[in-house]
Design a protein around this nucleic acid. Structure first.
Length: 452
DNA sequence: TCACGGAACA
DNA sequence: GTGTTCCGTG
């Protein structure tokens, strides 16, 4: 089993790596290899009542859930349905390809064991490597893991248990109980059509950037999940901020309520409509979408969400791979990436190790470690690429810079990592300020555009 | 309102 | 030793 897990993990990382490369972002890379798939819970899909369609593009599998984004009522219904489904526990029930889901969580050994795996695919590293280029994922390497899985001990919290039994997994160590890690929870929400556009949505799914459209709602849901009625965005936000250090999340500066997963599962289910298309361009637009408008969810809805949610999550374990970065450490505070290229350093928990799994080489370069170009930047770049030279001068310039930066990184990465293909950006030394991602070189003040 | 981060707690 | 929440501060 462990082997399996590892593989899986590898996969993820690779995926992430690919993402990292800025290049990929845009382009699609070649096809992705899917590596391992577990299908943990198929129910996810079912639970939500979502209709899923997987797209296997050559590149990556993307699952798209089409849902109506709409309505609250849907939401409710969906939720209910989801719950029902959850309770049902039938893994097979859905016909979906589970593959997608698999990636969702990073399975931990435990998980693997406990959770039903439907299928696994193993792909050779090479395959993976080949895929690296793809844009599928952005960065996510480190997925966010952490949090939930383990549980928090914090002062107050206790583990929540979710109402629903975990059908799917029982998680073992990491998550003791059914707990979901916050990051998982968020991912779940992002895949839930009820929540997705409404309370949380992707602003740039490729980049792993999402926005808490209705932070209160999300926090409430989280609180429900944790059995913390008092949960609020502040509290939840703290947890999110800790993810920065762990490399699970990055904050998108300048945008409120916008965070970025350092790495995402390669195959995620994206609810159509949830993503803003471009995050960059309109950063805000997304924001607007839903936020408050959405009717506050009723408690019920919250409940429903809570219940369903936890079902999803796989316990990934710790997935956080060796995230090590620390923003603190990092020279600059910056946001975008707080990662540092450091040694892999400690891996926090064993679990993590496994998750992380590194490629043979030993050190897989993790995004976090990489200095520089953040997914965000990449994203931006991507968005900007379309610009013509004459168009927005500064932007264009920035884009150029980013592009070159990415190329350099990629190049160096290749060299460096012959290893597996981790495409990740390498820490190339760039003029970029480390601290902040800003691409802008010092000279380019405009660069602000980029990020935002 | 959001964001940050130290400290406390488990 | 680590993760979560609280709390003060900006």
């Amino acid at each position: 089993m462990s082997a399996m897990l590892q593989q899986t993990e590898l996969i993820f990382e690779y995926a992430s790596d690919r993402v990292n490369n800025g290049q990929q972002l845009d382009e699609h890379l070649a096809s992705p290899a899917v590596i391992v798939e577990q299908v943990p819970h198929s129910h996810l899909l079912s639970y939500s009542g979502l209709a899923c369609e997987q797209t296997h593009t050559d590149d990556h599998l993307l699952t798209t859930v089409e849902g109506s984004e709409s309505g609250d009522e849907e939401t409710m219904e969906t939720l209910v349905a989801a719950e029902t489904l959850l309770n049902m526990d039938s893994p097979d029930s859905h016909s979906l390809d589970q593959q997608d889901y698999t990636q969702f969580y990073v399975p931990s050994l435990d998980d693997v064991i406990t959770s039903p795996i439907t299928q696994q695919l193993i792909v050779s590293v090479e395959d993976i490597v080949g895929t690296l280029g793809q844009p599928q994922w952005v960065t996510l390497q480190r997925e966010t893991v952490a949090e939930q899985p383990k549980k928090k001990r914090g002062k107050k919290s206790k583990r929540p248990e979710s109402p629903t039994p975990d059908i799917t997994f029982k998680r073992g160590k990491y998550s003791k109980g059914n707990t979901l890690y916050l990051w998982q929870f968020l991912i779940e929400l992002l895949q839930d059509r009820q929540a997705c556009p409404r309370y949380i949505k992707w602003t740039n799914r490729h980049a792993g950037i999402f926005k808490l459209v209705n932070s209160k709602a999300v926090a409430r849901l989280w609180g429900k999940h944790k059995n913390k009625p008092d949960m609020n965005y502040e509290t939840m936000g703290r947890a999110l901020r800790y993810y920065y250090q762990r490399g699970i999340l990055n904050k998108v500066e300048g945008q409120r309520l916008v965070y970025q997963f350092a790495s995402l599962p390669k195959d995620m289910v994206f609810i159509s409509g949830d993503e803003d298309q471009e995050d960059q361009g309109n950063h805000e637009d997304n924001d607007e979408d839903v936020p408050e408008e959405s009717p506050p969810f009723s408690d019920q809805s919250l409940d429903d969400l809570a219940s369903y949610e936890h079902s999803f999550l796989p316990p990934p374990p710790s997935s956080r791979p060796g995230y090590q970065m620390s923003r603190q450490t990092s020279s600059s505070p910056a946001t975008a990436h707080r990662c540092q290229p450091g040694p892999e350093s400690k891996s926090p928990s064993p679990a993590q190790h496994r998750t992380v799994l590194r490629p043979p080489g030993g050190s897989l370069i993790q995004q976090q470690h990489l200095p520089i170009v953040s997914a965000e930047m990449l994203r931006t770049l991507q968005n900007v690429q379309s610009l013509q030279p004459g168009q927005h001068g500064s932007v264009f310039r920035t884009a150029q810079l980013l592009g070159s930066l990415c190329e350099r990184q990629a190049a160096s990465a290749e060299q460096t990592t012959s290893q597996i293909g981790t495409l990740q950006l390498q820490p190339v030394t760039c003029p970029v300020k480390q601290g902040k991602l800003e691409v802008k070189t010092e000279e380019d003040p405009d660069s602000g555009l980029t990020r935002e």
